[in-house]
Each structure stands twice: as structure tokens, then as C-alpha cells.
Design a protein around this nucleic acid. Structure first.
Length: 570
RNA sequence: AGCGAGGUAGCUCAAUUGGCAGAGCAGGUGCCUUUGGAGCACAAGGUUAAAGGUUCGAGUCCUUUCCUCGCUGCCA
């Protein structure tokens, strides 16, 4: 990220202090440590941008490390997906791809060390008993009867655990710290538990697996991490992080906690995201309505926009909810500069230009991107029968409706001025088509006599238009915080109109060869991206985000000025 | 209740570490426009949770109070 090299926050303050005091010799080495038990989402993106960004800012390095200490939940599919998403976001870790499971042997040796110095013991209390003995927030815990076993016995028992002589739940290895601590994490936390599940990487080699707390700090230490940046809920774990490192007596990184991202109108917990997938509220982890990186990618979001967003929201220790429209702001910002414009009609209304020659086809020049001269120009075919957007015509227009109406003249973008002369309806009064005349002297869209029109409409030539499918995505939830109501399940707030499929829609022929992931602006409507399931025979466009639309805003504010059915295309 | 963290504009963050509280976004008003897009200009927005104290001077330091969040997995 070049734009904000000098961006400051409380983390850079800490790093600067370290640089001054000489701790870490001025080095900065971070890591991004996902657990491979789900897909990356926009909340992870914040952590990713932070960890990789800070390393870059200080000329340091950032590792990718999978925190794979719980084989019961983790899968290779997630490892692959996470790696792909990270690459797509534009980050690179060279050869520094690590797994906590790479350190299982070393971790095991460290555990033995702690046993040997009398700071760890094998506990055979049941899970329920351990919970009881732990006490509560206000009541101190009490010591396990197994707490003071001799070192030799602990060593032998731990070896038995490793060898598979115990079944799941029959024994754990615990650190001997302080059962009366106000911080419950320090009340003899479990270091190792027995798990029967095969591990995606170590297979059946291990029967015991280290807990997060026993693995994370030491993994950081082994990799020479300087600043171990994590989210706020680990604040209470820092004393334990420090305790393990101090008692094992190895190199000691600094853990720093920041507030995780909360986004309005969506959920960002893996537990809930996985439910959306499993209960088929969405089509999968990459459903364009999902806040996952894969979902955002399919929706048409760009890595640049996501990174800009993360940069914009900054980092702090205060929990807050970022409005979804902030994400939308950044994708509009990026796409405005980079997406080619194209004309497409989502909700067609037929227009016949009565004074235009029957068989004439003109190739009119159109600008691909007014924000980027280098994007060049293209030709768009014009003929006698066209489609315009149904919303662009009103038979009885309210005061501030500038678009087409009977007797009114408007411009067809890059083409001609047309005037509506007649409205053809069926028996029910439904408008079937419009009859218009055009002014041949306005070719290209400018009038030689200098007269002006108030609106410019997009259009496609009926004969030349491509039929395509458009998927209009809206927010997945109808409320800002789907988790706020404790009486209801978050799925109760799923937006029933979060996806509307329009098929067919009509798109100008220049997009014929569009490939998966290509992004366009359908002029005056929205940004769209080509879906991966799209084929040359059947193009499928996902709406990324609508253009800002002051007409619909004014319409809402004006309170019924325009008596229109809701749910146009925009 | 115990431990920990935090409270600056509607939202997200700044404030050169004690020196005139500022940005972006949102909202507002204009201008411009061959996208009612984009862009530009301007205005508005604050008792820095509250009270007290130290100081020439406090968002920043001290005390007290209030409020919010996290923690009682053999998850991470």
C-alpha cells in the first residue's frame, strides 16, 4: 500500500517505542495466523492488511501460519481456500508458509520441560469436574487432587497420553499456575488434550494436541515474530502467553490486541457463516451475498477496494460497527476509475424510431471509461428498434422527472435526440412500446443548434443486443445488526429480496467475449461482474453495487411525489 | 461481584505525548455534466461520558463516579 505509508495508530506507536528502546533491534516481523476451519471473511482482511501492511511499512516480514491445533474442526479445503484468497488480495509470504503443526515435536518437548520443573501436571479429573474446580468469575477455583503428583509420575502419564493409552477426555496436561487468579485463563489452563481425529497434515501421528494458548506464543517465538497482533478477546490470554514463554525461557514476542471488525447488515462469525452455508440460506461460501473474501470476489469486489477499505477504517481498541456503505463507497471509488462502461437494459421497454430507415445500422462511437482516456473507445450499433429502461419513461411524469415522457425530447447516449410521439398499450393499459422520432442532425448526441435536453438515456439496439442474466444482489439482512435481538435467530432477519434474478436482460454486443471476473459499469445503473458460472452462450452478471442514485433518493424524500411502484432496477 | 479493556462529531479514526479538538465517510446546500454517475465548492456538525483536582494551560496527568465490551471450552 503506497498511499498511507505514514499511517499511524496505537500499534505503530508501540512499535516505535520498541524501536527507541532497542527491543527487537528495530525489527518488525508479524504473522497472519488463521485457523483452517472456515473461509476468510472481510474481518480477516482487516487483520491481514494490518499484519502484512505493518511489516511492509517498517521494511519487515509477515509470515502466513495456519493455526492447526484442532483437527476436529480443520480441513484441507479451508487451507487451500485461505491460501487462494490471500494471494488474490495481493499478499505474498515467499517461503514463509508455516503450520503450528510443524512445531508439534518442539511443543511436546517444551511441555516435558514444564513438567520437569514442576510447572505442569497430568490431570485425570473429568471435564465437568475441571469446570467445577475452576470456580467462577467471582469465586476462586480449587486445586485438583492430581495437582501435586511427583514429576516422574507426570512424565510417565504424559507419555501414556501421547502413546494413546488414554481415551478422549480421560486425561489432560495442565499448567500449574494459580487456581485463585482473577484471570480465569491462569487457573491451571489445559495445555494438551487427547483428540482422536486424524490431522490434515500429521495424520495419525498424534493422539494429543496442544491448546491454542500453549501453541501460539511458542510458534511466534520459534518464527522470531516480534509483534503478535491479535484481536481484543485475547487480552485476557496475554498473561498466559507471557507465562509460557517466560517459564520455558525462550525468545519473547510482544502480543498486541486490536478491535476486530464489525460490519453492519451482515454477520462475521464463522459459526454463523457456516450456518448460512449449511442451512442453504446462501449457495455456498462464495455466494456473492457472503462477507467472505470469496463471496466479495464473486460479487465483483476488487482487492484494491478491500485494501483501501481496511486502510480507511484504521485500527483501534474501541469496538465499533462499520457501516456496510463504507465498503460500498470504496468499491465504487475503485470501479469508477477502472471499470469499462457499457450499456445494458435490465427492464426493457421497446422503442421504435418511426423516421429511422428500416434496414439502416449505424456504428456509433462510445467512450469506454471517461475516467481513463487509455481505456479507448468502441462502436455500438444503432437501429430502428431499440430497448430503453422502463423506468426511464413515464406517461404522466412528476415535476422533477427529467427522463422521457410523451412529447418530450431526450438524448440517447452517443446517438441521437429522440422525441416520444406515441404510447402503445395493450387492453389492460400496460405500455407495450413507444413510438419516437429522431433528429438526424444530432448524431453523436449533440445538437448543432445548441438546444439542450435534460436527460440522457442508455439504450441497446434490439437486433444486436445480447441476452444475458443479471443477478441483483442486495444486503443479506434487513437490519443493521442481525444479532442484536436475543429473542430471535439472526436468520430471521434474512432479506427475502437479497437476490433478484433478471433473465433475460439486454446488453450491448461489445461484451460478447467478457470473461469470468470482468467488471463493468452498466451506465446509469450499477457495477456488474461476470460470474464464474457464466458461459459465452449465457453471460451471467452479478451486480456488485448500484451507482449512487439521487433521483430515487429525492423520490423517497419528496414523499409520494412520484407515485411509483417500488423496486425499479436501480 | 472478580480480572481485563475501553468511552473524542451520526459512523470510523486523528490530535506532534501537557499547547488554538482535526480528517474521511454519512447527512446538508450550491456549481458543473452527453451517466440524475463522476467531479468541484461551501456550510454545518463537539460541554472530548460526568464531577473534582494538579497546572499559566488538560482530550492527554491524578481521584471518584457512570456507562460499554470481553472472560467461568479438553475452541481459536
Amino acid at each position: 500500500m503506497s498511499a498511507n505509508e505514514t499511517k499511524k495508530n496505537f500499534i505503530t506507536d508501540i512499535i516505535d517505542e520498541h524501536a527507541e528502546s532497542g527491543r527487537f533491534d528495530g525489527n518488525v516481523h508479524t504473522r497472519f495466523p488463521p485457523e483452517p476451519n472456515g473461509y476468510l471473511h472481510i474481518g480477516h482482511a482487516k487483520s491481514i492488511c494490518l499484519n502484512f501492511g505493518i511489516a511492509e511499512q517498517y521494511g519487515g516480514l509477515c509470515n502466513l501460519r495456519f493455526d492447526d491445533t484442532n483437527p476436529a474442526k480443520e480441513e484441507q479445503e479451508y487451507i487451500d481456500a485461505i491460501t487462494e484468497d490471500l494471494r488474490w488480495l495481493g499478499y505474498d509470504w515467499d517461503d514463509r508458509l508455516y503450520f503450528a503443526s510443524d512445531y508439534f515435536d518442539q511443543l511436546y518437548e517444551m511441555a516435558i520441560e514444564l513438567i520437569q520443573i514442576g510447572k505442569a501436571y497430568v490431570d485425570e479429573l473429568s471435564q465437568d469436574e475441571i469446570r467445577e474446580y475452576r470456580g467462577t468469575l467471582t469465586k476462586p477455583g480449587v486445586k485438583s487432587p492430581y495437582r501435586d503428583r511427583p514429576v516422574e509420575e507426570n512424565l510417565a502419564l504424559f507419555e501414556k497420553m501421547r502413546a494413546g493409552a488414554f481415551k478422549e477426555g480421560e486425561a489432560v496436561l495442565r499448567a500449574k499456575i494459580d487456581m485463585t487468579s482473577g484471570n480465569i485463563n491462569m487457573r491451571d489452563p489445559v495445555m494438551y488434550r487427547i483428540l482422536d481425529a486424524p490431522h490434515p497434515r500429521t495424520g495419525a501421528k498424534w493422539k494429543i494436541y496442544p491448546m491454542y494458548d500453549f501453541a501460539h506464543g511458542q510458534s511466534d517465538s520459534i518464527e522470531g515474530i516480534t509483534h503478535s497482533i491479535c484481536t481484543l478477546e485475547y487480552e485476557d490470554h496475554r498473561p498466559l502467553y507471557d507465562w509460557y514463554l517466560d517459564n520455558i525461557e525462550i525468545y519473547h514476542p510482544q502480543q498486541i490486541e486490536f478491535a476486530r471488525l464489525e460490519l453492519s447488515h451482515t454477520v462475521l462469525s464463522k459459526r454463523k457463516l457456516i450456518r448460512l452455508v449449511q442451512e442453504n440460506h446462501v449457495s455456498g461460501w462464495d455466494d456473492p451475498r457472503m462477507p467472505t473474501i470469496a463471496g466479495l470476489r464473486r460479487r465483483g469486489y476488487s482487492p484494491e477496494a478491500i485494501r483501501q477499505f481496511c486502510d480507511d477504517i484504521g485500527v483501534g481498541k474501541v469496538k465499533g460497527v462499520v457501516a456496510f456503505h463504507k465498503l460500498e463507497y470504496h468499491i465504487r471509488q475503485h470501479l469508477n476509475k477502472t471499470a469499462d462502461r457499457v450499456m445494458a437494459v435490465l427492464n426493457p421497454l421497446k422503442v421504435v424510431i418511426e423516421n429511422y430507415p428500416d434496414d439502416l445500422v449505424e456504428e456509433l462511437e462510445a467512450i469506454n471509461n471517461p475516467e481513463d482516456e487509455s481505456a479507448g473507445r468502441r462502436k455500438v450499433p444503432f437501429s430502428k428498434v431499440l430497448y430503453i429502461e422502463r423506468d426511464d419513461f413515464m406517461e404522466d411524469p412528476p415535476r422533477k422527472f427529467f427522463r422521457l415522457a410523451p412529447g418530450r425530447e431526450v438524448r440517447l447516449r452517443y446517438a441521437y435526440f429522440i422525441t416520444c410521439t406515441d404510447v402503445i398499450k395493450d387492453d389492460e393499459g400496460e405500455i407495450l412500446e413507444l413510438r419516437c422520432t429522431y433528429d438526424p442532425t444530432t448524431r453523436g448526441g449533440a445538437a448543432p443548434d445548441g438546444r439542450r435536453v435534460k436527460a440522457t438515456l442508455h439504450w441497446v439496439s434490439a437486433r444486436h443486443a445480447l441476452k444475458a442474466e443479471a443477478r441483483l444482489y442486495d444486503s443479506l439482512f434487513t437490519v443493521e445488526d442481525p444479532e442484536a435481538d436475543s429473542q430471535k435467530d439472526f436468520t430471521d432477519f434474512i432479506n427475502p429480496d437479497s437476490l433478484r434474478v433478471l433473465d433475460p436482460v439486454f446488453v450491448e454486443p461489445s461484451v460478447r467475449h467478457a470473461k469470468s471476473g470482468d467488471r463493468f459499469q452498466f451506465e446509469r445503473l450499477a457495477y456488474f461482474a461476470v460470474d464464474p458460472g457464466s458461459t459465452p452462450d449465457k453471460l451471467v452478471f452479478n451486480r456488485t453495487v448500484a451507482l449512487r442514485d439521487q433521483w430515487s433518493k429525492a423520490r423517497k424524500k419528496g414523499g409520494g411525489q412520484a407515485r411509483k411502484k417500488k423496486g425499479g432496477n436501480r
